[in-house]
Design a protein around this nucleic acid. Sequence first.
DNA 1: CGGCTCACG
DNA 2: ACGTACGTGAGCCGC
Length: 882
Amino acid sequence: MDKLILIDGNSIANRAFYALPLLNNSKGMHTNAVYGVTTMLLRLIEEEKPTHFLVAFDAGKITFRHKDYKEYKGGRAKTPPELSEQFPLMKELLQAFKIDQFELEGYEADDIIGTVSKLAEENNKQVLIVTGDKDLLQLASSNVTIALTRKGISEVDRFDPEKIKEKYNLIPNQIIDMKGLMGDASDNIPGVPGVGEKTALKLLHQYGSVEEVLAHSDELKGKMKEKIQTNADQATMSKELATIFREVPVKKSLEQLKFDGFDQKAVSEMFEKLEFKSLLEKMDGSVQLDNEVVQEEINVKVVEHNNLAEVLDKLPSMKSIHFEIIGDNPHQAEILGLSLFTDEESYYIPFDILKSDEARGLREWLADEKQEKWMYDYHKTKVALYWQDIELHGVTFDIYLTAYLLDPTETKNHTISGLAQRYGLSGLKNDENFYGKGAKFKVPEMDSLSEFLCRKVSLIHKLTPLIEANLEENELVDLFYKIELPVAQVLAGMEIQGVKIDINGLKLHGEEIQLKLDDIMKTIYELAGTEFNINSPKQLGEVLFDKLQLPVIKKTKTGYSTDAEVLEKLANEHEVVSKILEYRQLAKLQSTYIEGLLKEVHQDTQKVHTYFRQTIAATGRLSSQFPNLQNIPIRLEEGRKIRKVFVPSSENSYILGADYSQIELRILAHISDDEKLIEAFQNNMDIHTKTAMDVFGVSKDEVDAEKRRTAKAVNFGIVYGISDYGLSQNLNITRKQAKQFIDQYKSVYSGVDQFMDNIKKQAKQNGYVTTLLHRRRYLPEINSRNFNLRSFAERTALNTPIQGSNADIIKLAMIQIEERIQAESLKSKMLLQVHDELVFEVPEDELDIMKQIVPEIMESVIDLKIPLKVDVSYGRNWFEAK
DNA sequence: CGGCTCACG
DNA sequence: ACGTACGTGAGCCGC
C-alpha cells in the first residue's frame, strides 16, 4: 500500500530549533533547526519508505481563524531571527530532497495536512503525520497515524485511534473537545479557565463532547458548574478554533506528491553548503558509490610471491601502512593483510604472503624502529600483530589517536572514511557499507578488497600532514607525542602481558555463589507466593507493585523502577525485598564476574587480556573491555573476594597496587588556587573531615561519621559540577538543605567558587575547556537556550578539567614507570590502570625497589601547588593488595 | 537493539 | 519552570 508522509514543517522546525544547540557553521549561518529537520527526513525515508511526501508550512500571520478570534496565537513570543533565517534553507533542502512543500496564505500547516490526509485516506493510502502539535491527533483514523515528537525530535510517539483511546480514553475527534475545554496556552486558545487536562477528560468521559457538557452543565456541582456556565461561549469558540479545516483549496493531486528518492548530488551539495559533515559521511555510506562520486585514480598492485621483491625494493621510501583488522577485540582479531603506499602506486599484501618466508625483509622493516611509519590505530594493530608473531616499531603518527585528541567527543567518525570526508578527501566507502554489517558481513573478492585497502592507506598518507597541522593549531602536539603515542605502546604491553587468573578458585567461588543463589531464589518464590524471573525488572515490578501492592517509589519510562535505591526504601514493607537485593548482588557477581570472566580467560595463557581503549572517554580517561578490568568489585566484601583470583603470573611474585589519594580534589585545589583547599592538602589533612569542619563550622572533634559522610558527598558533588538537586538525591535530604551546604561550601572555599564561575565563562567564550596538559573538550551546548543541555554542558565544563587532568597525570606516570622498569631491567610488569591507580606484578626480590620507585614517580610527574600523594600496598593476589 | 540495572573510578 | 550529579562496560530482558 502507498504511504504518504505529511510533515508539519513549522512545528518540527520549532521543536528542532529549541531541542538542539544553536549550531553555527563557518559562515555564521545558524543551522540547528535545518539539521534537526534533515536527520528526521533521512530517518523517515529510511525507516518508513514513503511513496508520497509533503511538508506543509504556515503562511502569513493572519488566518481565517483570526476572523473569529483576533487574539488567536496572540501573546506568542516572536520567532527568533536565528530560526526564521533557517526557513529558506529548509525549503532549499526540501527541493534537493525532491520532497513537495506547500503553504497557502490564510491557512495553517495543520489545515493543509488535514485536507491532504483526507484526500489520501479517500484514495486508500496509508498516512503518517509528523508533528509536535497534539492538535493533529484529531486526524487519526484506521489509515492515519500521527507521530508526535517528544523530548526534542529524535523520539516520536505514534498515535493511532487505539493509542489515543488507551492514553485519553477518547476517540480522535474528541481531541477537539478536549482543547475546547482546556484551551491551549501556546495558541492563545482560552478554553474554560480553571479546566486543565484532568478535568477536561473527566467531563468528556462522562458527556462525550463540549456541546453535551454544556447541555448538562446543570448536573455539575459548585465551582465547576459556575466555570462552565459562565464560559460556555468561550468553550464553543475554542473548540471551533481547535478544529482543523479539511477543505483547504490545495491544488495538488496525490500524483504530484509522489516521492521516488532524492537527488543524491543535490543533497550532498546542500550538506556541503550547510557543513553537515557527519551527514555527508552517512550519505556516502548509504549509497553505493557510482560515477557521480569522483574517486581518485589509484594504482593498486596485489602482492604475490612473484612481485614481492618489487615491494621490498621500495620499502625505504614508504611511510604509510595500514593493517586491516577484523573484529573489535585485538587479542582475537583477524588480520586480512597490509597495504602500503608510495606516490606512484599502492600495494596490498595478503596476510599469508606477509607471513611467508620470502617476506622476512618486509617484517624486519615493520619491526625497524628507525623506519618511520604513519598509520591508523597503532595500539590495536600492535596487539593484533603480537598474536601473529609480528613486531611493529617506528610508528610516529596515528591518525586515529590524533583525531580523538582533536575532538574526543566524536567517536563514530574517527574512521578513515569519516576523516577523509572531514578533510575534503571524499571517495572512500565506510566499512559498514563495504563489508556489510552483522550477519551480512562478508569480505569481498580480492579485486575490490585490495582497492579498498589501498585507498585507505593512501588516505592515511594524505591525512597525516593535514591532521598534524591541525594538532599544531590546537596546541595538542606535545600531548600526542609525549603522552598519547607513548602510552599507546605501554598499554599494548600491559594487554599482551595480561593478568593471570586462578581458574579453579574462580569456579569454586562460582559454585559457592550458586548454592546461595538457589537458596535465595526459593525463599523469594515462597515469600512472593509466585515463581517468576527475578532478573526481569518487568516481572519483578509486577510482583512487587501489582501483586504485593507495595508503594511505587519511582517510575521509569517503561514501567516501575526496581533499582537498588527503590528496593532499599521498600525493605521495611515486605520481607521479600531484602532477599531480592541479596539476589541481585549475587546474580551480578555470578553472571558478570564469575561466568563473564571465565569466558574471557585465554586458553593458552590462562590469563585475561583486557583491551584498554584510548579513544573513547571524552575526558581522556581510558576504558577497558573484553573483559572490563576497571570495574572489578571492591566496595562490598562479598564482591571484593573476586579479587582473590587475580594472581601473579609467576611463583614468588606479588600483586602491587599504587593509588593516588584524593587526586581529583588535589587537582581542584591546584587549578582553582583556593587558599583553604591548598592549605588543607599541604598539611595532609583528611579532606572530608576538613570540609565537614568548614561547612558545619565545628572543630575536628565534633566531626562525627554523619558529618563526614555529608562532607564527602559535597566534595564529590563539587567535582561533578554540583547542583542542589543532585546533592539532595545523593544524601536523601531536601533541596533546601543541600543548597545550604553548597552555599556554605562556596563561602568558605571562595577560590573554588570563583573557579566554577571562571571555567564556565571560559567554556562559553572558547567553546571548549582544557586540562593541565592541554587536552581539549568542546562543549557546543554551553550556550544552548535549552536549560537541560546548557546545564549539562556547564557541569561538564567543571568536571572535565579535573577528571581529564587526572587522566593526563596518570598516563604520564605510566610512561615514566615503564621507562624506569626498562632502564633498570626489572622483571616487574605493569598490569592495569584503574583511573587513579596502577597495578603491577612484582617478583619478591623487586618488592623493595618497586615500593620505592612507583610512588616516587607517580608523585613527581607533575609539579602542582600541592603535593600528590600515593598509597602503596601489595599481597599474594589483588584482594590481599589492600 | 534499547532499556534497565549495577560494577568501578 | 525546567529536571540533573561526572566518566565508563557488561549482562539480561523483551520487543
